[in-house]
Design a binder for these strands. Sequence first.
DNA 1: TCCATCATGTAAACAGTTACATGATTGC
DNA 2: GCAATCATGTAACTGTTTACATGATGGA
Lengths: 191, 191
Amino acid sequence: MAKRRASLTELEGCVLGTIAVRGPCTPYAIRREFQKSPSQHWSASAGAVYPLVLRLRHRGLLRIAQQSRDGRNGRLYALTAVGRRALREWIRPPFSSFTISVPPDPLRTRLGFFSVLTPGERRMFVTQARTQTKAHLLEVKRYTKRMESGGEVFEHLVSRGAQRMVEARLMWLAELRRAIPRTSDDPCRGS
Amino acid sequence: MAKRRASLTELEGCVLGTIAVRGPCTPYAIRREFQKSPSQHWSASAGAVYPLVLRLRHRGLLRIAQQSRDGRNGRLYALTAVGRRALREWIRPPFSSFTISVPPDPLRTRLGFFSVLTPGERRMFVTQARTQTKAHLLEVKRYTKRMESGGEVFEHLVSRGAQRMVEARLMWLAELRRAIPRTSDDPCRGS
DNA sequence: TCCATCATGTAAACAGTTACATGATTGC
DNA sequence: GCAATCATGTAACTGTTTACATGATGGA
């Protein structure tokens, strides 16, 4: 009576995955988990988490493990067998074209419309992007180290992946810096 | 009377940007533009484009440039002065934390939940991901070359950025391959 | 004539955000 | 007693997708 969709969305996968890895937990704990992660791409608002958990429960992927923990009236959710199977299918290959194709990058997107900027603004874009990206890279590296010393093997490798992405972007920005000034007359550089 | 929000969403920026770069065009042309781009992250469906263009028109960022082109009854939209200013603000620094932080990566996300897979499944994940990513990289490289020979300077640099991201992912997957087998007992490898 | 494509839209469903409301518990 | 936090939720709004409807044009 609750089947309809076989596959999971990214967020559904993340919620199921979090519960699977940390063990039974409350929706509130899931929210905190997402909020402390360095990714900016899901706010994990109450209005998103609670309906989502309920949806997964109605689909038979989650069940309530305990009505109440130490005094608080939080309900602990755990995976059902069906939920665990769905999660594994979501993680495992074959990967959809959405999963495997180039991740979207707001900075890269903006470069597509560079022709509306003046040469000076373009240089400003690149230098500013390099500055902010370098600062961000430091943060990510700190996070990577914390995961490494924490002994969280997979978390560490996840963070390594994030780090490599930021490093790739930095190298790309260096390439931009070399390429951009030559694309237009540029009175501000003596060479 | 139509002000409310100052800044643009990613999609609004892309639509304005496309019109700015290609010149006045129909919503339909914008849809095709997005559909032919290698990015999988916006379907550019009619139900998204038409309301969005209308919204931008009501906010005074777009205007109708011509009622009709060669026989077809398509309306060509063009930027207003306000629209051009909004677009430039959207492109230019300072960049928000959303813009500058690590792009989301579905593959990387999945690695966070690796502990629910068996060692064999983990190896399968990595080898399969490498295979599919290599294939995707070839596509991206072809696209890059097409842009380079086409003389589209910025389009080429955008594609270079995408290429670097995919290459970074491939290097990360190689790192995974080296790291994963050692994280658990692994009866399938003689060494 | 018929089919593919050009072109514009709408309706329903769904997902996610912000903001709000509520109440229990813990620590001061 | 009071503030911060834990915890659960709802309501209104916005944006996106899927699917459908409509009609014009151009080429076979």
